[in-house]
Design a protein around this nucleic acid. Structure first.
Length: 503
RNA sequence: GCCGCGUUCGUCUAGAGGCCUAGGACGCCUCCCUUUCACGGAGGUAGCACGGGUUCGAAUCCCGUACGCGGUACCA
């Protein structure tokens, strides 16, 4: 690459940042950093109707959370600003008119109704895909068909109009996509794309080309949904006399239900589509990034765990695959477990506190109070016992309650599983045995249980399952002896007594 | 419909004509460890969409079919 690498992530603030958008941002980031280049955030807010308040803030905070800071952006001024298209609007008109003068674009005065009428007419006469193109423009109201004086008059009168790209009748547009190789489109299949809308703002197609050129973008890395409009962009670069950036169209992230990942076909499968939901859900950013990187890319060997630094070092667009990748929630969870368990109990505690602060309303007040009353050291000790048994902070809160509170009730299904005939006798015997045991610590508690099991001639499971249920109300949990030591003699005996009375 | 892109285990992927008896990971199953819950370890399950070529030889190259996905707006 001769020119410096400059890439951009160019989301539209029409909603919260989509998980697919984060993947696009990631690939741009990895490519930029791998080549020592610049990663730019550009806000494509040219559609006033779809603008969503707060969307831009969501995009920037999400990118920062994910560890993908941009070198230039709305809140990170660089030499090529501004980085919001709404703040660059004067620019586009000039370029569009330049195209008109050169004969590559034209003014069009047709109303929405007139265009609709044209479409209907064409559909009736058997054309299944009517377009405003080299044929139909001849019978529409534009600067190609209207007398020059009338065009001038309408323009001077400030009449509403758009500027359309004059797509050649019969030509082939070819370009080399870094991921897909040579791609070719016949211009007969393209329409005379609107470049400037009647509200005075450009469409994505014009704005993206003008901005990419004026911002010195070297590579356009975006989702495959843009592939079909790429030839229009190539045409624009040609007409402007600019060298087009290198194109790379990424495979889409698909829903297990089929189709590209969207609210509709993903959320019912338990797959959040917005990055903010992953943040709120307590996911580890490293895990999400690692997972996303492997959706459509791989390092070429057997490694699965790669940090962001590793990814930067290894990334290349040549290794990006062409086919869409299905989002696999189970694998994300596996990544999350991996990154979560690698952290210290102290860090777990810090994450849990943050998580609990965000989810206060869903947590039992008594539990919250007990948790808050406990020392950091005690709480961290709980984390140490639970970390390898949960897949992330989000499961932590649900699974540590019994460290702080006796189980309130027993789930009949769990009781059926763990409380068998004879269980009461065994639990009673163990309780009696540890009532006066000293010290009340994991090792002697462990030895006592082994001794009892041997004497009674029963397997350890026969003893431990009902004990676990009686103490925690669950059939799954931490090392039992460490747990007993944690909650102490008095609490342990009280819980056993309570369970014995109820079960 | 038309245009474009794609197609290796259920899923993510390795594989650039002989190294492929198709490798890894997630999931699932079994076993070991622990006579608990997990972690961990060892195995197992399962795939080149189909049909034609080209070639001594094809998962890899070509063509066709099927299927999937994307696009087809004064949305991005």
């Amino acid at each position: 690459m001769s020119s410096p690498v400059r890439v951009r992530f160019a989301p539209s603030p029409t909603g919260m940042l989509h998980i697919g958008g984060l993947r696009t941002a990631l690939f741009n980031y990895l490519f930029a950093k791998h080549h020592g280049g610049t990663f730019i955030l550009r806000i494509e807010d040219t559609d006033q109707n779809r603008y969503v308040e707060g969307a831009e803030a969501d995009i920037t905070t999400s990118l920062k959370w994910a560890g993908l800071p941009y070198d230039e952006g709305p809140d990170a001024p660089g030499a090529y600003g501004p980085y919001r298209q709404s703040e660059r609007s004067q620019l586009y008109r000039k370029y569009a008119e330049q195209l008109v003068e050169a004969g590559h674009a034209y003014y069009a005065f047709d109303t929405t109704e007139e265009i609709e009428a044209m479409r209907e007419r064409l559909i009736k006469s058997g054309n299944p895909s009517p377009k405003y193109d080299s044929i139909t423009r001849q019978s529409m109201k534009n600067s190609l068909t209207l007398p020059q004086e009338e065009v001038k008059r309408r323009l001077d009168a400030g009449e509403e109009h758009v500027i359309r790209l004059k797509v050649p009748r019969r030509d082939t547009v070819r370009f080399d996509d870094l991921i897909r190789g040579t791609v070719a489109f016949d211009t007969a299949g393209l329409d005379d794309q609107v470049l400037m809308k009647s509200d005075g703002l450009p469409t994505y197609h014009l704005a993206n080309v003008v901005d990419d050129h004026t911002m010195g973008i070297s590579h356009v890395i975006r989702g495959e949904e843009w592939l079909s409009s790429a030839p229009k962009h190539i045409l624009l670069y040609q007409y402007f006399g600019w060298e087009a950036p290198v194109m790379a169209h990424l495979p889409l992230i698909m829903s297990p239900a089929g189709g590209k990942l969207s609210k509709r076909n993903a959320e019912e499968l338990g797959i959040p589509v917005n990055v903010r939901q992953y943040i709120a859900g307590g996911y580890e950013p490293d895990a999400l990034i690692n997972f996303l990187a492997f959706l459509g890319w791989s390092p070429g060997d057997d490694r699965e765990i790669l940090s962001l630094d590793d990814l930067v070092r290894e990334f290349s667009l040549e290794r990006v695959s062409k086919a869409g990748a299905v989002f696999n929630m189970k694998k994300l969870l596996w990544y999350n477990e991996h990154y979560f368990r690698a952290q210290s109990p102290e860090r777990h505690l810090a994450s849990l506190k943050a998580w609990m602060a965000r989810h206060e309303d869903t947590l039992d007040a008594g539990f919250r109070a007990a948790f808050r009353a406990a020392s950091d050291a005690d709480n961290a000790a709980v984390m140490a016992l639970m970390a390898e048994r949960v897949s992330g902070v989000h499961e932590l809160a649900d699974n540590i309650r019994y460290f702080y509170q006796a189980p309130a009730a027993f789930d009949p299904a769990d009781v059926a599983k763990a409380w068998k005939p004879g269980s009461a006798e065994l639990v009673t015997a163990y309780r009696d045995r540890i009532a006066g045991i000293a010290p009340f610590e994991a090792q002697p508690l462990h030895d006592a249980l082994h001794a009892l099991a041997a004497e009674q001639g029963v397997g350890l499971g026969k003893l431990m399952q009902p004990l676990r249920l009686a103490l925690t109300g669950k059939t799954f949990g931490p090392d039992l002896f460490a747990f007993l030591q944690r909650i102490g003699r008095e609490e342990s005996l009280a819980r056993l007594a309570k369970a014995l009375a109820e079960l």
